[in-house]
């Protein structure tokens, strides 16, 4: 096995490698531990280049995407940033290193030790957070509604659904043949994103809270492996009763993740626990692999 080049590692960190190339590199760093250090060294280089504005626009976007998707990388990056901005001059290095305060903080530090200034600033910041939170909630209530009812005509909504899946049956369906009343009406849609990058060991299912005006629940489900062209999905209740099925869901591919989107009439859902199972219809994993999402519906 040949050592990984810094360029390959950089591409790996920016999410530019194919799945096969990723596997190859991962196998490498499990068998050659020097490669692990190399990966983190390249990550530090990338962080430095990012902070110095030396990355191209595309690389910068990919790096930011990577940081958004990985909480740990984000933390490592924040450490890098803090060290770059605050590493003390050589004379200041002592058994207890004191970071040089940020330039803007320095001008306000007359007579205050660094630590006490930190405590004072923290208290002021906390007060600021509370104040701005209050302003923010007031502002949001004045300008937007968090779940802004989307003025989508029911007929349009159905056409959009049918493009991706077949609405199967046992439950009341949205009107397929719209009457004049339904054409004029609006559908209030609540969108929920069910991610897959989640903390292990949490058994509690997420709760989807639905206010009375919600007519359609739109679920965006993050896919683990999106190598299938189409997926099927089954929504069942905790008593194993099938609520709705989809037979040909088309995945949507983003830069670093893929998802399928499906819509469920709110009236089809009760206050109960649900299991949503997605299976690939094509691709290598179709026989063995299915992805499950559990959630609880709470109607207000």
């Amino acid at each position: 096995m040949t050592p990984a080049s810094p360029l390959t590692i950089k591409d790996y960190l920016l999410g530019k490698l194919s799945a096969e190339q990723e596997t190859e590199l991962e196998e490498l760093y499990f068998s050659d531990m020097e490669c692990v250090a190399q990966i983190w060294a390249v990550f530090a280089d990338l962080s430095e280049q990012y902070l110095n504005g030396e990355l191209s626009e595309i690389e910068r976007a990919l790096f930011e995407q990577r940081l958004r998707n990985s909480p740990v990388l984000r933390e490592m990056f924040e450490n890098e940033r803090a060290l770059w901005h605050n590493a003390p001059a050589p004379t200041a290095v002592a058994a207890q290193p004191q970071f040089a305060p940020q330039p803007e903080a320095r001008s306000h530090s007359h007579g205050l030790g660094w630590l006490s200034k930190f405590q004072l600033r923290f208290a002021l910041l906390s007060a600021g957070v509370l104040l701005t939170a209050g302003i923010w909630f007031f502002w949001r209530s004045q300008t937007t509604t968090p779940l802004a009812p989307e003025p989508i005509a029911t007929v349009q909504d159905n056409q959009q659904n049918n493009a991706h899946h077949n609405l199967a049956t046992p439950l009341p369906q949205p009107s397929v043949t719209p009457t004049p009343e339904t054409t004029k009406s609006v559908t209030t849609v609540a969108t929920f994103f069910l991610p897959t990058q989640l903390r292990r060991g949490t058994v509690e299912a997420p709760t989807i809270s639905l206010s009375p005006q919600i007519q359609t629940v739109r679920l965006e489900l993050q896919l683990i492996d999106a190598d299938s062209a189409t997926y099927s999905a089954v929504l069942s209740s905790d008593s194993a009763e099938v609520v709705q099925t989809w037979k040909a869901l088309t995945p949507q591919h983003g830069q670093n993740q893929s998802k399928v989107v499906l819509r469920i009439p709110a009236r089809a859902l009760a206050n109960a626990d649900y299991l949503l199972e997605i299976k690939p219809l094509t691709g290598s994993d179709r026989e063995s692999f299915s992805q499950q999402f559990r959630f609880t519906v709470a109607k207000q």
């Binding site: 701005t132 302003i135 923010w136 502002w139 802004a148 969108t191 929920f192 994103f193 989640l198 997420p206």
Partner: peptide, 30 residues
């Protein structure tokens, strides 16, 4: 792979984008 199939959070997203603003919003400030 097993971890990925264990959903435990849900994020509610607005169906329509928030109106654009020329300056920082109070939320940005917070």
């Amino acid at each position: 792979r097993e971890t990925l199939v264990k959903a435990n959070t849900v994020t509610q997203l607005p169906e329509t984008p928030l109106p654009l603003s020329s300056g920082p919003t109070p939320h940005d400030v917070m």
